[in-house]
Design a protein around this nucleic acid. Structure first.
Lengths: 139, 139
DNA sequence: CTAAACAGTGGAGTACGCTCCAAGGTCAAG
DNA sequence: CTTGACCTTGGAGCGTACTCCACTGTTTAG
């Protein structure tokens, strides 16, 4: 499978995949003509990357997962361990969010917990608060 | 309150606060000598910023919150509305995490859902997968 | 009066995660 | 044999969120 098809199936750009390859997140053979050639499972792996990213994991963390997996003598077992670790991380994150939720819920009733707290007074309201237009990759 | 004390109380660097001011996230008067002067509530506002960031909100989003707040005729009411909106976002995020959690939990038992999925074959294992060391701002 | 501790500015640099571009090679169809 | 779709590389650039630095001004303690 060449990069174009992989990109289409994984729903990302060729450039992104090349970038992932550069940082060691994906690997593929090369065809005699120099083209990249990926096994079909790479689609699932890329989707996993996307999911993990959406969850707030950095590419470096995801790469570590991949490395651990590669180095494991028993892949199946290693995978289970990793997933269990991720579950813990997720649980932690959910707990944090729940805490903040409660925090905010408490304040909803309150009068003005942040009143006039150094908010941008009265300046260029129509201008962008951040240097140049905001854009976020995923989410 | 000058920037140093504010930074100490909010637990962040002076530079960060100056940066926030530059992008319109905080505002303060200036003393005759040019020093910034912040109202004490700014501490709470900065802490709110940190929390929101930890939750995955970008500074631009946080700034929009602030703007909405400023423009509201009834601050108390606007705040409640905003908090309720945040609660929804948090609930959504928790739901997403829960879904992924279940997803992973399912796979823990499974054999090898990602086996050989284009993982970095056998290269420089000791080198950093990402150009230079990974670091994440908050969390 | 001097030294230290603060404050200010502007600009450069950093890490992450890409995107976009230019210049060129490869390949299949017409 | 040309056209067009696809692939390659390298490098530049961008947006977010800062940090760090140099140089300068202000305030305060001894």
């Amino acid at each position: 499978m060449r990069i174009g098809e992989l990109a289409a199936q994984a729903g990302m750009s060729r450039d992104a995949i090349r970038f992932y390859e550069k940082v060691g997140l994906v690997a593929g053979r090369r065809l005699p003509n120099g083209y990249r050639d990926f096994p079909p499972e790479t689609v699932a792996w890329l989707q996993y990357i996307r999911t993990a990213q959406a969850l707030g994991f950095s590419l470096a963390e995801i790469a570590r997962t991949g490395e651990t997996l590669r180095e494991a003598p028993d892949t199946a077992e290693a995978l289970s361990t990793l997933f269990e670790e991720k579950l813990q991380v997720i649980d932690t994150r959910i707990a944090e969010l729940t805490t903040l939720r409660a925090d905010l819920a408490t304040r909803v009733g309150t009068g003005c917990p942040l009143r006039a707290a150094g908010l941008p007074a009265e300046a260029e309201v129509e201008s962008d608060p951040v240097p140049t237009g905001a854009r976020r990759p995923a989410e």
